[in-house]
Structure formats: structure tokens, C-alpha cells
Amino acid sequence: MSGRPETKPPEADEERGAPPSASGPPSEAAGLRAMLWPRANRAQLVVGLLCLLLGFAAVAQVKSTKADTGFVTARQDELVGILSDLSRRSERLRGDIRDLEGTKASLERDGQGETALEEARERAHTYGLLAGTLPAVGPGITLDITDPSRRVRADVLLDTLQELRDAGAEVIQVNDVRIGVDSHFLDSPGGGVEVDGRRLQAPYRFVAIGDPHTLATALNIPGGVMKTLMGAGANGSITQHQRISVSAVRS
């Protein structure tokens, strides 16, 4: 920042009559005062205009930074991920709209309540599956746990069950016990595990209906269920099925 020295009339400071500040030498105070004193020539106006522009731009930028939700700073691949998530979601929602509109149309068409009955039956079936009162068939996996050293306790089985639920398993059966929302696991005093009051002995067999690949992946994650089983000296084997049936029901 070099340039020719500023010419400033020293008498201008005297006219304003401000006393020189006690701390600095008079020339400093005079410099400050001269700087703050408006001198309207064209160059000063241009400087002022540029500063106006700077203030305006800064405020505009601050406002837009506050307004946006972080998309500006997101990387390109993140944006692509967000976009594909959104389009997948909107696709799904559009499918839902189509289904619901179809239902609505058929409800309107039918006077005898045939469609309504069908809907109700379908809903009852869904609830029955969730509550465990109906047998179910669908794609899924079986997980066979052999436990030669008898060290698989109730908590390991519970972890396995939760992992399956997290991975989206809809219907689950352990040996011949259908799992419901209030199922519990207890260590049985004489060895084995008590599930909902029924004593089970190894080998344990989980049958879970859900996306087979997702379920298998969830069980196989590092440090997950399979590793825990291995650590307990047990052996788990997962088989994926395109069609598997859960026949046990809860009363």
C-alpha cells in the first residue's frame, strides 16, 4: 500500500479546537482527527462508495449464510447423495399416493362395502403378523447357533433379536417360539435360555422374515452379533432364503 504522501493542512486541526490527547503525541491525534473529518472530494466519495458496497455485500452474505441450510458448503458427492435420497423418498411417497388414490377410488365405486371389508381384512392380517398371532411366509434368513461350550446366555440372544429388528425383520421366531413385542429372554438355572416362559436348549434357530441381504449384512457387521457369538465360543451360520415360513404363533 504505497503512494504519494497525503497532504493535509495542519491548521485544520487547530480550527476544530479539540485538545490533543494526553497519551499520544499531537501529530497522532491530529492524524486521527484528520482521518475522521469529512473531506468531500471525488476520490473520497469513491472510497466511501466502495466501503458502502463492502458493508452491503457483507450484510447480504451474512444473511444468506444464515438462511441457507448448509447446501452451499456441502461437497458435490454429498449433494448427489442428498438429491438421490430425496428423489427416492418422493418416488416412494408418490407410490403411496397412487396406492391410496386407488383405494379411495375403489371405496367410492363400491356400494356394498366389499373393498372396505377387503381393506379391513388386509389390515387385520398385517396386525396379526406384527402381533404374532398369524403364521407368515416371505423372504428371510435363518440363523443357526450351535453352542458346544454352553456359553450363549440370554443377553446374546436378545442382542441378536434386536439386531434383526433393527435391520427390518418383520416376523421372528426362535426355535418354536414366536417373538412378539413383549418377548423376554431369561437365563435358565439348569442351562439353556427361557424365552417367554419356554425353556430352549442349544442349538438355537432364528427364523426372520425381512430383506435377506440386509439382515445377513446386519448380523455380519464387524463387532456385531456373529463376532460376539464367536467370542462366546458358539458358532452361527446364516442362510438366506427367498421364501421361508414362520409357523409358530403366539396365543
Binding site: G48, L49, L50, L52, G55, F56, V59
Partner: peptide
């Protein structure tokens, strides 16, 4: 001084006009 006035005026303008950055 004019520079300072300009800066303050710019900030005030920005607050008043609520501009959006293109």
C-alpha cells in the same frame, strides 16, 4: 470519515433491503 459513513450506510442498506445473493 466518508468511508466510515459509507460502511455504516452499506450495512444499514443491507439490513433494510434484505438482499439475496444471486
Amino acid at each position: 470519515m466518508i468511508a466510515l459513513i459509507g460502511l455504516v450506510a452499506g450495512v444499514l442498506l443491507g439490513l433494510l433491503l434484505q438482499p439475496t445473493v444471486p
